[in-house]
């Protein structure tokens, strides 16, 4: 791509607009890591388009010095799909919220994911509607009290990982907003993946849903509640990496690595290419606050599949149709069945 001299830095990806997010909002971290990743990837500002819907998180394009379109609520993926289909050579990124992507835009989510356009999608999941001031969202936990659920949410929440894999997604990763380093690397992997890369960020909204992810960030609990996935490595977690996950038939069980009868070799080895296992990981969705008996919440890259992209298949059909030359305007106007008068 660009030679090292011309390589841009995160600063070059910073627009002249001041972010208008609340102090302490998790969105700032995402913005920073995205700019870092774009610079690391050697992208040029003119070849990138950031597309978004509506929400706090959807303000993202304004703060990045590339091309950008801030669309309408829920429709970012539809707009990005048309752009990518028309211009496959552009690097298209989508910023979308949990309400934007999974509620009003849920239909577009399913269909974009299954079509596998080469888009990099950053789903800012704060389990709340931020911009409209704190109504519950389709990812809010049952029981959450908000302005529209004064007695607690009764809706069963969406499991984004399971939805994405169920819809035929080819790349799914989950990242905590404060894990900057991991986020930067995952953004790069997402960009390199040819297909719809879905990165779900657990993003804290200190104003309307502060602490939503505290069970996974609290320093005393985090080691037991989270599981960091690494390709080819066993599923190990816990304070001193003293716990592992083993598959007992189709049932994942937590084993104590301090127990001499358990060997590392018995553990589940993470394989991003394994669809069945990725689906099982997606079901590690327990609420650590709800019971003592829970599986840790996975972070990192769940699943990567090589599959043709929508736009490449369409372009190939066009190339094939033009094998013996592109159609001319004359031919188009005349069609295949003509007659002459006079």
């Amino acid at each position: 791509m660009t030679d090292t001299l011309a390589q841009l830095t995160a600063k070059d990806f910073t627009s002249n607009q001041e972010p208008k997010w609340c102090p302490g909002c998790g969105d700032f971290a995402v913005l920073q890591q995205l700019k870092n990743a774009m610079a690391d990837l050697g992208l040029k500002t003119e070849e990138v388009v950031v597309v978004s819907g509506i929400g706090c998180s959807s303000r993202l394009p304004y703060y990045i010095a590339t091309y950008g379109v801030h669309g309408i609520h829920g429709r970012a993926l539809a707009m990005a799909s048309g752009l990518k289909t028309a211009r496959p050579e552009l690097s298209v990124w989508v910023g979308t919220g949990d309400g934007d992507a999974l509620s009003i835009g849920g239909n577009h989510y399913i269909h974009t994911v299954r079509r596998n356009l080469d888009l990099n999608v950053i789903l800012f999941n704060n389990e709340i509607y931020g911009l409209t001031k704190g109504q519950y969202s389709p990812t809010s936990k049952v029981g959450l009290r908000t302005v529209t659920s004064p007695n607690g949410v009764v809706d069963h929440p969406i499991n984004t990982a399971a939805l994405t894999l169920g819809a035929g997604g080819t790349f799914f990763a989950r990242v905590m907003d404060r894990d900057g380093k991991i986020m930067r690397e995952i953004f790069k992997r997402a960009a390199e993946h040819k297909g719809t890369s879905l990165v779900e960020i657990y993003q804290n909204c200190p104003i309307f849903n502060d602490g939503a992810f505290e069970p996974f960030t609290d320093k005393d609990r985090k080691a037991d509640t989270t599981l960091y996935l690494e390709q080819g490595k066993p599923l190990v977690f816990g304070k001193n990496n003293d716990k592992g996950i083993r598959l007992d038939g189709f049932t994942p069980v937590i084993v104590d690595l301090g127990d001499s009868s358990v060997s590392q070799d018995d553990l589940w080895i993470h394989d991003e290419k394994d669809f069945i296992k990725a689906n099982m990981l997606a079901r590690f969705f327990d609420d650590p606050d709800a019971s003592e008996d829970f599986l840790p919440r996975p972070f990192g890259i769940f699943y990567v599949e090589d599959r043709y992209t929508y736009e490449s298949a369409l372009s190939a059909q066009i190339e094939k149709a033009q094998e013996n030359g592109e159609g001319t305007l004359e031919e188009l106007l005349a069609g295949s069945n003509t007659w002459t008068i006079g």
């Binding site: 539809a78 707009m79 048309g82 752009l83 211009r87 577009h108 269909h111 369409l314 159609g327």
Partner: peptide
């Protein structure tokens, strides 16, 4: 397609118009 036309059968009319706006 011989004339390079790209059609996108969208999931609904909303995606129909939004994809066109993107294009």
């Amino acid at each position: 397609k011989k004339w390079g036309v790209k059609t996108f059968q969208a999931e609904d009319e909303i995606a129909g118009v939004l994809s066109s706006i993107g294009a």
